[in-house]
Write a protein that binds this DNA or RNA. Structure first.
Lengths: 166, 166
DNA sequence: TTTTATTTTCAGTAAGTTTTGAAAGAATAA
DNA sequence: TTATTCTTTCAAAACTTACTGAAAATAAAA
């Protein structure tokens, strides 16, 4: 595969994969485009490259900035805003974990907390409380594991010394 | 909160949370309903309780069976099929991890494999290859970590001896 | 100040996903 | 065999989410 095809394929694939990752197509495509861009890009560049509207570009760029996956870059003498992607993959992975945990795990823990004080007594209530406790055990463990992960060094996770020799 | 409210809240909350978990509302609600049901339920029971159509019930029950979260139970002398949920939470968690990995991680690894042989030489190609390698490093590590997790014992993960004293 | 360049917002529309319900299919009973 | 009961399928409808494009807001330049 040649370089140009590769880049094109990466953007398309990232967009398609994004939908399976709780990220919309366009947000994932913009992220991919910025990841492979050698220079920062402005809104216009992105609109043109991905054939999307200004509104769409703007909304998804802001979402990417909320996730700390993309930063604004202000060029001296330029009125327009330029955008760069966070290139450190461990930062990217950590931020994605943080956001997904917020969306997928934390609301669940809140519900389980509410449910853990149902009245005992009625037939079946004991089993119900047991179930909630079991679910909570796993959810809390997942929560604390992901917390440590996002606070750890990339080498601990991947078991390499990549960064040091870069 | 009383027992009845608790059950109702659990079903509703599970449905809402499901959408953030890549599972549709109804599939998650049926799962919740079966998890708290003391006896196996038939399609009719589920349709009535959740106020959904027969087609919807049928499709989502099949999806739950594909995920190994629900089993058919055939009662002697009964023509209808009955359904029970897998009640062992570790089994539930493992199966959900397996399915989500299949949907979210494995397609990504396939794309990265394809992309890892782009031609070198053109300006920027080196950086692109470096990026793909970095992403692959994390994706592969996540893949192997989740693989071990789904093959491990629940005690190893949650650090309790829950099962033994049950 | 007014003009011009750029970003942001949001109502309307388009695209994608889930649900319904009726018809077809399958299995058992009569 | 035919009738009965239950399951499965799938086209159309309902719902949900994402995108567009034009208008409003903002900010720099003249």
């Amino acid at each position: 595969m040649n370089f140009h095809e590769g880049k094109e394929r990466f953007i398309q694939a990232w967009g398609a994969l994004g939908s399976n990752w709780g990220v919309n197509r366009t947000m994932a495509q913009i992220h991919a485009l910025l990841l492979i861009a050698p220079e920062s890009l402005c809104a216009e560049d992105i609109m043109e490259e991905l054939k999307i509207s200004r509104g769409n570009a703007n909304m998804n760029l802001r979402a990417l900035m909320d996730w700390n996956l993309v930063y604004k870059e202000l060029k001296p003498g330029e009125r327009r805003e330029f955008f760069v992607a966070e290139k450190d993959m461990w930062e990217v992975v950590k931020n994605i974990i943080i956001q997904r945990k917020k969306k997928e795990l934390e609301p669940m823990l809140r519900v389980l907390d509410e449910l853990s004080d149902v009245e005992t007594g009625e037939p079946g209530a004991e089993e119900f409380i047991r179930l909630i406790k079991d679910v909570k055990l796993f959810a809390s463990k997942a929560d604390s594991t992901l917390d440590s992960l996002t606070k750890s060094d990339s080498n601990w996770f991947v078991g390499t010394f990549m960064k040091m020799i870069k």
